[in-house]
């Protein structure tokens, strides 16, 4: 695989191949009943690893477990649990 002449990357957004979900020690769990679909968690997610909807869907491939979504959810529909727990 021959390299380009300098550190030029031709595939935009190919960082997607790096699944940062393995970084987590805590993970967010959405209570589908409580979620009102406001989308604030999607807005505040730094990765982003949330898809809008009612309920929202967490993309665990990339979620780093920062906890912003749980902290900001206006109806407390997201809780952070130990990775490995259901």
């Amino acid at each position: 695989m021959k390299l380009p002449p300098s550190t030029i990357i031709l595939k935009p957004g190919n960082s997607e191949q790096n699944e940062t979900g393995s970084w987590r020690s805590l993970k967010p769990v959405v209570d589908a009943e409580k979620c009102n679909g406001c989308g604030l968690c999607w807005l505040y997610c730094p990765e982003p690893a949330i898809t809008k909807g009612k309920p929202v869907v967490i993309d665990y491939r990339y979620c780093k477990g920062c906890g912003i979504c749980a902290n900001e959810c206006p109806v407390k529909a997201i809780v952070m649990v130990e990775e490995g727990q259901k």
Binding site: L3, S6, T7, I8, I9, P12
Partner: peptide, 20 residues
């Protein structure tokens, strides 16, 4: 055609770029 120029030359690749 969006490209990235001037990415970080991590140790796995730096020597090759210098050789080129």
């Amino acid at each position: 055609k969006p490209i990235t120029m001037g990415a970080v030359g991590v140790p796995e690749y730096y020597e090759e770029f210098r050789y080129m």
